[in-house]
Write a protein that binds this DNA or RNA. Structure first.
Length: 723
RNA sequence: GGGCGAUUAGCUCAGUUGGUAGAGCAACGCUUUUACACAGCGAAGGUCAGAGGUUCGAGUCCUCUAUCGCCCACCA
């Protein structure tokens, strides 16, 4: 039954006129929720995934838009194919990122720091900000057409997810996988917190390399300000230049603040080719030096405090910021005639991903996850081994598969994960102290006098639980039984380590199974020139602006076509414009068929086709096969382009053009049978293509299907064409 | 230092197990013909980075080289 709504025929396709209304119609139908899908009983195969939760730090960017376009396409395809489809929306508290954003705003607007406000007030502000951000982000999700089950919305800091976090922590604590220890960590003096190895970003910097006289040796350093405590002078055991010195020898040397006793250490890590082949070490403030000191059981001495200032052991330089101290110390050494030379060299300095501050390694007492400890319940495998096995056993398939190598390489270099953060916004560590007693549980202990650990957890700890925390774990819910492991995990390759690896870690450990079957990695969305989009360059394209200008379908298509997995995508506005034209083309082609009475009730699929039409329909069958195949293989970039080509070049430019002669039949050359055969063929062609196009361009296809053609069943839940 | 990727028409990129080079955009010519000028038709444009190899046949597989980009590790 078709009921053409002729009023909407006028003019071209205007996305803004329809998109909002269509999304509301979808959402009201309840079909985003698998519990409400038609023919529920026949949907025996499931397909589900969770959305990579965007940080509640503001608004969406094009990367999110690409993620939503790809995931929604997969979801709509599988839903139409009759699977039990669940796609869960959510957002991430992103502790450091969110707190520092709010802190910046408060500092700018009110001139206050977090300490002026206090923990409670700051958290109130951050939470309010998070609520706002969430609302903005989710309205953007809707604008993209994402068919998410909003009834299952999750947030990494809501009650259920919090229970998951503390439960996971407790179990790991009881299993001895989480420990508190004094270790060298990445301390960010600017952000006043530790960060994990993965949050360290190395930046190239030109700096001075100083050569100092250190007793009979010459040592080189880029960091004179750390050198006060350098009582150990290290050289390679094979270095013939220094064979007269024996390991453990002690000698007096004149140093920054007078004479000190130095000890000779021989260690093979020393590169004989670099500089003089001799160096002094600062075990408290350098990871490498720390390792050397540990190997030889040496003393550790702190030189720099957590604000980046020198400690009293620096005597006259005490209290100076390291940047100020550097030149002054060099001056003093010069006056003592201990500076041999200076040269400019380039090296990498460690900075904090979020705050941008320079990392100052420190030995601190922090919480860690032990990645090497054997786990009894898991066949005596370590977390590291569990992570390796999940991928090498092909339980998890990564697309593109070259990222497997990257993954293995990362795990092989993996060290214990520092999970405690000295910030306020986040999941507080569920450990309490009282008179030397330590208590870990999901809830505070009874009785008075217990004080909870001040630190919060690395935001990736809660993200790591995402595939099952969103399904209700630790409760054994129906959702958890039915939907875990999830089918697909789709995200950017830039968070392979941060997120994907950690999810595999937590899921294999806590649930004994992989968190997902397939991993699909998309690339970065860059601007038309291939530059990374960033605020400072000013080349950020806001997906919402593009949607308003060209429609969500056009934005989605431009993010699909040519976007091969794992490759970066260069996006120009012209490209989006091109797909707006395509939506218009679909619209106008439909309009033409309507004018030619192709949708008349007496034109049915059953009409006997003439030979030429049979051939055309065979082409269509081939197309259906190809598109289905491509979508099963997650080749969205191929499928989207093929549909575009077929509709425009084959269907519109050739088939419809040829049909004009038949339908107009000006010279009475065609029989009624031929005319009806063609009409029926055109109808099938259009309707089938609308179905195939729907996952990619849901709005325009749905508008045509249910508003224009007046179909009763929404296209969103119409059956995928038979292969 | 280790690893990965890219190099195909002016620009952006496809090219799934090797079988006579593709699309979009831009540019050029023609056409306002009642679906669409957000259009149609037409023409033009490439020794598939370079060298060597395997093969009847290579953009596609192998080796090397060059340029660009990314990731990891990091030298004091």
């Amino acid at each position: 039954m078709t009921k053409i709504n002729k009023e909407i025929l006028d003019g071209g396709y205007n996305p803004t006129k329809f998109e909002k209304g269509i999304y509301e119609k979808w959402e009201k139908s309840g079909y985003f929720n698998p519990d409400n899908l038609p023919d529920k009983e026949s949907r025996t195969e499931k397909f589900n995934l969770v959305v990579p939760p965007p940080n509640v730090t503001g608004t969406l960017h094009m990367g999110h838009a690409a993620m939503l376009a790809i995931e929604d396409t997969a979801v709509r395809f599988e839903r139409m194919r009759g699977k039990d489809v669940l796609w869960i929306p959510g957002s991430d508290s992103a502790s450091i990122a969110t707190q520092s954003k709010v802190e910046r705003d408060i500092s700018k607007n009110e001139g206050k720091s977090r300490h002026d406000l206090g923990r409670e007030e700051l958290l109130k502000r951050v939470n309010a900000f998070a609520v706002d951000s969430k609302a903005t982000i989710f309205s953007q999700f809707r604008a993209m057409g994402a068919s998410l089950d909003w009834s299952r919305e999750a947030y990494t800091m809501d009650q259920k997810r919090n229970l998951a976090v503390v439960t996971a922590f407790k179990k790991m604590y009881d299993d001895g996988l989480i420990y508190k220890g004094n270790r060298i960590v990445n301390w960010d003096p600017k952000g006043q917190t530790t960060i994990s190895d993965d949050e360290v970003v190395y930046k190239e910097e030109k700096t001075k390399l100083y050569y100092f006289k250190y007793g009979p040796f010459t040592i080189s350093t880029a960091r004179p300000e750390t050198k006060f405590g350098d009582k150990y002078v290290v050289m390679h055991p094979e270095d013939k230049r220094y064979k007269e010195y024996k390991h453990g020898d002690k000698l007096k040397v004149e140093w920054i603040n007078g004479e000190i006793e130095a000890t000779i250490i021989k260690d093979e890590v020393i590169d004989m080719e670099f500089g003089t082949g001799v160096m002094t070490i600062t075990p408290w403030h350098s990871k490498e030096d720390f390792e050397i000191a540990k190997r030889h059981n040496l003393n550790f001495e702190q030189v720099i405090d957590k604000y980046g200032k020198l400690l009293p052991m620096a005597e006259e330089f005490s209290g100076l910021k390291i940047t100020d101290a550097r030149s002054k110390i060099v001056e003093k050494l010069k006056s003592k005639n201990l500076v041999e030379k200076e040269e400019i060299y380039t090296h990498n300095i460690a900075t904090a991903e979020r705050s941008g501050g320079n990392i100052e390694p420190q030995i601190m007492e922090q919480w860690f996850i032990d990645v090497n400890k054997k786990i009894k319940d898991r066949n005596d495998k370590s977390l590291k081994e569990l992570m390796l096995d999940a991928v090498s056993s092909k339980n998890i398939l990564i697309n593109p598969d070259r990222f497997e190598k990257t993954y293995f390489n990362w795990i092989n270099n993996l060290h214990d994960w520092c999970i405690s953060r000295q910030i306020w916004f986040g999941h507080r560590i569920p450990v309490w102290y009282k008179d030397g007693e330590v208590f870990c549980d999901v809830e505070a202990p009874e009785g008075s006098g217990w004080v909870q650990d001040e630190d919060t957890l690395d935001t990736w700890f809660s993200s790591a639980l995402w595939t099952f925390s969103t399904l209700g774990w630790p409760e054994n819910t129906l959702d958890l039984q039915k939907y875990h492991p999830t089918t697909l995990l789709e995200t950017g390759y830039d968070i392979l380590f941060f997120w994907i690896a950690r999810m595999i870690m937590m899921s294999t450990y806590l649930l004994g199974e992989a968190p997902f079957k397939h991993v699909y990695l998309h690339g970065l969305v860059r601007d038309g020139k291939g530059q990374k989009m960033s605020k400072s360059i000013g080349n950020i394209i806001d997906p919402v602006d593009l949607i308003e200008k060209y429609g969500a379908d056009a934005v989605r298509m431009s993010l699909m076509v040519g976007n091969a997995p794992g490759n970066d995508l260069k996006l120009s506005e012209d490209k989006v414009k091109g797909y707006k034209h395509f939506a218009n083309k679909i619209w106008n082609a439909t309009k033409f068929l309507e004018i030619k009475n192709v949708f008349d009730e007496n034109v049915t699929e059953e009409i006997k086709k003439v030979e030429k039409d049979e051939l055309i329909l065979r082409e269509l069958t081939d197309l259906v096969k190809e598109i289905t195949f491509d979508l099963e293989k997650f080749n969205f970039h191929l499928a989207s382009d093929k549909l575009y080509q077929f509709f425009w070049k084959r269907f519109a430019d050739e088939i419809i053009e040829d049909s004009k002669i038949i339908l107009n039949n000006l010279e009475n050359k065609f029989s009624l049978e031929e005319i009806n055969s063609r009409k029926s063929t055109l109808k099938i062609l259009l309707e089938t293509q609308l179905k195939l196009l729907h996952p990619f361009m849901p709005f325009v296809t749905e508008v045509i299907w249910s508003e224009f053609l007046g179909k009763e069943k929404m296209l969103m839940v119409t059956d995928w064409p038979k292969v």
